[in-house]
Structures are given as C-alpha cells and as structure tokens.
C-alpha cells in the first residue's frame, strides 16, 4: 500500500492557517513582553526585597516550574470561574502563559543578576551612582546581555508551548490544524505543514531576538 501525499486540501484552508499563525504570533508576543517584565521584577525582588517577599516570589517560581502548563491553563480557565473570575479563552491563555514564563524568566534573570561581580557594583557606587542607577547600568544591563541567549530559548519554548491553548479552543495555529484535519483527514500533511509553520515562527523570533540583541548590546 502506498500513501500519496496530497496537500491541496490542506492549503485550500489557508485562511485558517493564516488566522492561526497570526493568533500564535500575537499571543506569544504579548506573553513574552509581560513574562519578561515579570521576570526582571521578580528576579530583583528575589534578591533585594525583604524576607517575606523573597519567600513569596520563591514560592511562585517553584509552584509554576513544578506543575504542568496544561494544569495551570485549566486552573485559570476552568477553575477560577468557580471563584467568580471568568476569562475568555484567549485572556485565560495569555494570563497562564505570562505567569508561567514569568517564573522561568525570574530564575534566568536572577542567575544573571547574581553573576555580576561585587567589585563592579562597588565601582559603580564609588563613582557616585545611586542604588537604582547601579542596578540599571552596572547590574541589570550586563546581566541581561549575558542571559540573553538563555532568555531567547525560553521565549521560543514558550511560543511553541502556546499550542496547548487550542485545548481551551483558542483559535491558534494548532487549533487551525485540528479543524483542517477533521475536515480533510489528511493528518500527516496537516501536521507537517503546521510543524513547518511553527518552525518558521521560531526562526522569525530568533531573527527578531538577534536584532534586539544587536540594538541593545551590540558593540558599535
């Protein structure tokens, strides 16, 4: 028995695919921006804040990093309405992924912040910089530069993981695949095409991150 590849039916539904790509791109971008901000704030908090706050942040990071993303998503989408917090599917997905990425970013940024030698921090103070100025120019900036590759990888992992949002029927790329599959029964072709589209998205993000790195940290 031979199987003939047949992509025509899959590409006939290109509007679904496009819609899916746009949703995944937009969802991931929002999540990356806010997840990163949470990461920076919580990383700083985990190092410099008082004991109670440090413990709260530590609890958040560990809770998120040690439970499945799908469980987190279902808690937000199906669980929270029980407490009167009801979100539409996309909002629930954005919240879950942002909170999730925030926890992972916190750990990465924290490692970066802690890797800055004391002597450099002291040199900053000795030049008359204030605490916040030292944090921004002497600690955060080189820490982000150093941790940028790790952060970029985490962001791309997150983008790929957003495919589980289809489980709560967010019309992302993976959701588009499911729809096309149920119409055409061309499983292999559908998932191959969608796989390639995810790959393309990942490459787009990589190029974008490389540009951001050059702009923010490149040597002139």
């Amino acid at each position: 028995m031979t199987y003939t590849l047949q992509f025509r039916d899959v590409f006939a539904s290109w509007e679904y695919l496009l819609q899916g790509v746009v949703t995944t791109l937009y969802l991931s971008s929002i999540v990356i921006i806010f997840g990163f901000l949470i990461g920076v704030i919580c990383a700083a908090g985990r190092i410099y804040a008082n004991r109670v706050l440090r413990m709260v942040i530590g609890g958040y990071v560990e809770a998120i990093r040690n439970t499945p993303l799908l469980v987190q998503l279902f808690i937000v989408f199906f669980g929270l309405p029980g407490f009167g917090l009801r979100f539409d599917a996309t909002t629930a997905a954005v919240i879950t992924f942002t909170v999730n990425l925030g926890a992972y970013s916190t750990e990465i940024v924290r490692a970066g912040l802690q890797s800055i030698p004391r002597a450099q921090i002291e040199a900053g103070f000795a030049l008359g910089l204030s605490g916040p100025q030292v944090f921004r120019y002497v600690i955060l900036s080189p820490a982000l530069k150093m941790m940028f590759p790790a952060l970029a990888s985490q962001f791309i992992l997150l983008m790929l993981a957003t495919s589980i949002a289809s489980q709560i029927s967010v019309n992302d790329l993976f959701h588009a695949a499911s729809i096309i599959q149920s119409r055409t029964f061309r499983d292999f072709e559908v998932y191959l095409v969608v796989g390639v589209l995810y790959l393309a998205l990942a490459l787009i993000f990589r190029v974008a991150f490389a540009l951001i790195y050059k702009l923010a940290f490149g040597r002139r």
Partner: peptide, 17 residues
C-alpha cells in the same frame, strides 16, 4: 561626596559590557 573622591582598585573593575 563620592563624586569628589575617586577610587581605583587593584582589579580595575571596568564595566565589561
């Protein structure tokens, strides 16, 4: 005060980035 008192250390401590 520190803006008026410079200090240079054994290890240079330039900002590498």
């Amino acid at each position: 005060l520190r803006q008026q008192v410079g200090i240079v250390f054994q290890g240079f401590n330039l900002f590498p980035h």
